[in-house]
Amino acid sequence: MKLMVNGSVREFEVEPDTPLLWVLREQLGMTGTKFGCGIAACGACTVHLDGFPTRSCAIQVQDIDETQEIVTIEGLSPDRSHPIQQAWVELDVPQCGYCQSGQIMAAAALLAETPEPTDEDIVNAMTNICRCGTYNRIKAGIKRAAELS
């Protein structure tokens, strides 16, 4: 099978009903995308699929065409320079950090769609779970990233 991940076509052998998350992590060795729940409830596995934030634990690779662009946390920027990443460092957003790949991908998708999001836009878009409770810094980070963009 083939998938377009972070700009490259990647080829692998796997059962076609395997979730994208596990292909990324196991077949492609890209562990930045995290396993949290397996039922699209927590968002730790969020990637971009043609620009849309997508919970990769709940989409099977057979349902993705190789022309569709998948972007993972590893491909968001080559050097942590995406405004979301800059803002995250500036505000020390992460605590344990486990959910942050997903949070950052969700936030980056929001910012691409809505360059100057309101509080309401942010709350509606950011449904990922963080057990450390970094929500308020995430909110501030998105606003800071909007300024940096």
Partner: peptide, 27 residues
């Protein structure tokens, strides 16, 4: 002061236990 461990948490490079891998490893 900023945390020493933030940077690797914004690009997926921080390794968690679940990410650990070894040659010949099975799951």
């Amino acid at each position: 002061v900023p945390r020493l461990d933030t940077v690797d948490k914004v690009d997926g490079s921080q390794i968690y236990s679940i990410d650990h891998t070894m040659e010949g490893m099975l799951n």
